[in-house]
């Protein structure tokens, strides 16, 4: 209290907001996980305004080009080439005739948002690679998106993990164009940017070529939490 009866309310309010923000950063993840389901229902009930509800367990739709590629499921072909004994061109029916894998796992974005308990379904990448038959000296894979810009990479040992899927179904439906359909990659142990959308081509090689976001500084080995 200063001599003329005035108090420093302004700076206290700023400090109070900063403290509230710090508490939100410190404990927000627990709050988010506890009330995410409720907020998701609220978000869905609000219609167009629902997109503004923070903390809802919703996907944010990323695209690095000017539009969402719309690829016809009927004419879709996944091409697998490079250092393989038998290059493949797999239609959606081919993928659906292969050994199928289902898993339920969250989707984690490197910037911090996550969608819990997402249902994924498709063919293990290792299964596809066993059909193509990578050569002895092959150590890396490069993935190219149907958007013509986005790329991703995995090492051959990462590609063999059981929870790396070439997914054609998620959230109980065919993968929609917004989510990267008809076929996308899902790399469960890594951040979302590794799960390339509109998967068009897989090139097997002996060199890891850093992917799209990795050229902006994201780790090439995008393990969630930074550990293998």
């Amino acid at each position: 209290m200063s001599s003329n009866g005035e108090t420093h309310v302004g700076r206290r309010a700023v400090l109070g907001m900063a403290a509230l923000g710090a508490a939100g950063i410190a404990f927000g993840a627990s709050i988010d996980n506890a009330v995410g389901g409720t907020l998701t229902r609220l978000s869905n009930d609000l219609g167009a305004l629902g997109a503004l509800v923070p903390g809802a367990d919703e996907f944010r739709i990323y695209t690095v080009t000017g539009s969402i590629p719309v690829i016809s499921p009927a004419s879709y072909r996944l091409r697998v080439g490079g250092m393989v004994k038998s290059p493949l061109e797999l239609s959606l029916d081919d993928l659906r005739a292969m050994k199928r894998t289902r898993l339920v796992h969250y989707f984690q974005c490197v910037t911090g948002w996550r969608v819990p308990s997402v249902h994924w379904e498709g063919v293990q990448l290792s299964e596809i690679l066993s059909h193509a038959g990578a050569t002895e000296s092959a150590t890396a894979l490069r993935f190219l998106s149907g958007d013509g810009v986005y790329t991703e990479s995995l090492t051959m040992s990462q590609a063999q993990l059981p929870d790396v899927l070439v997914a054609d179904r998620m959230i109980g439906d065919d993968v929609t164009p917004d989510h990267g359909g008809p076929v996308r990659l899902y790399v469960a142990p890594m951040y979302g940017y590794k799960s390339i959308k509109w998967l068009d081509r897989i090139e097997v090689s002996d060199t890891v070529v850093p992917g799209y976001w990795e050229n902006f500084g994201y780790p090439v080995n995008g393990w969630i939490g930074g550990v293998a």
Partner: peptide, 25 residues
Amino acid sequence: ASGVIMGYAPARWIYWQQGATLVHD
């Protein structure tokens, strides 16, 4: 503060990144 944590925090801060995202939103 929350934006810097979202964009530049080390990967092991994932719990705080989720909180920072909620705060930023």
